[in-house]
Simulated assay, not measured.
Amino acid sequence: MGDSAGGERTVTDDAGREVSLPEDVDRVVAVGPGALRQVAYLGATDRVVGVEDGERDWIRTVPYNMANPDLRDKPVIGSAGPNAGGNAEEILSVDPDVIFFYGDDSRAETLQSQTTTPVVSLQITDLGGETTRTGIYETWRLVGDVLGLDGRADELETFVEGTIEDLHERTADIPDANRVEAYAGAVSYKGAHGLATTRKRFSPFAYAGVDNVAGGVGTDSPSVQISEERLLEWDPDVIFVDSNNRDRARLDLDSETLDGLTAVSESKVYTLLPHASYHHNYGSILANAYFVGVTLYPDRFSDSDLSTTIDSIFETMLGAPLYDDLRDTYEAHRRLDDLDG
């Protein structure tokens, strides 16, 4: 992935750009949705010398920030948001060795020119299926190569694949006719959404062996808007909603039109940890898969203590047992009817 000569080396980033780096990278910043999260997964937040302003505000409850609260005290190097591009002057003031960047490739070139600092462009995706996961593993290896933490990147890949394999094995022999049909609603995508926003490919369902009623929607878009009529037609056994948007989902579910849904009448609507907050929360996606599995197939997960399992996920990926804090912060992994509305 990289070549070295003298005191410098070259890596090829996820945009195919060849970037010259110093041999040792001790000071970094990360710009754009999900960029800093990848540094946190590699266990290298001690090298971060500046952060986007959201780390002090609305990103405080995102898992990687909760696991690394010292990030909130770092100097600000730009505004957070879907079009974040970093502030060149503020970045220069903290003197990083490397800038990790997620966003438009042309902006990466501009930022590198403005700061005369190597900019490494990252490709960040959902965990998804095997092919999609290969992409994020390559990104982890790239970040690991830049930081000299190749072994950590391999460790993360092994852990994620082992976790997904465990989930698959628990439900693999359930006949299709016996699989629970479920719907994931109010799933964030570049902002907050109501019940009608779902995913054709919803990783927690795929990993836990659940039949996603939206799986047959004819689109390749990662986020899908469906009508109330379509949801009534599907009439899923169970509904899960993103806890970031549960109030929006509750308003939608309280409509007279949706009162007839089986999941509503039988009080089988549950909240999940946010699937995405400033890009995808990989630990939360795996945690949600276990909650879905325990909720829908309790006999298949009877040997798994949910709290212990999920704490292990966050400890391995982010270095801290976050489950109780996350569950309380978001009122997640609960029945919606049990929450104050």
Rank of each mutant, 00 (worst) to 15 (best):
V94I: 09
T45G: 04
Y102W: 13
L318M: 08
A196Q: 12
L127A: 14
E55H: 15
V210H: 01
A40V: 04
R230C: 01
G86H: 11
A44Q: 15
R47D: 13
V292N: 07
R72W: 06
A153P: 07
D145S: 13
T110S: 15
E181K: 05
G78E: 00
E23S: 15
D242W: 00
G16E: 06
Q38M: 12
W234Q: 00
V269C: 11
V48L: 10
Y297V: 03
V143R: 11
S113I: 12
A320I: 01
F205E: 02
L71Q: 02
L273I: 03
H168A: 11
R300K: 14
K200G: 15
F100I: 04
G185R: 00
L318I: 08
D220N: 13
E8G: 07
D237K: 00
T116P: 01
G283N: 04
G218K: 10
Y189M: 00
G341H: 13
K268P: 03
R9T: 05
Y290L: 12
P118V: 12
G103R: 02
R72M: 14
A177G: 08
R107Y: 09
V19N: 07
F301C: 00
G293Y: 12
E52Y: 13
V217S: 06
D235P: 03
P22G: 09
Q112H: 09
T134R: 14
G209E: 08
L167H: 06
T308M: 07
T271W: 13
D337H: 01
D95V: 11
L273H: 10
S93H: 01
Y183S: 02
Y323G: 02
D73I: 05
G78L: 05
W58F: 15
G32K: 10
T61Q: 13
D176E: 15
G43I: 04
D237W: 00
T257K: 13
E130W: 00
D242E: 05
V48E: 09
D247G: 00
M1I: 11
F205I: 00
D3F: 14
G103W: 10
A192H: 14
S106A: 14
L231V: 02
E169P: 08
I226W: 02
D254R: 11
D145F: 01
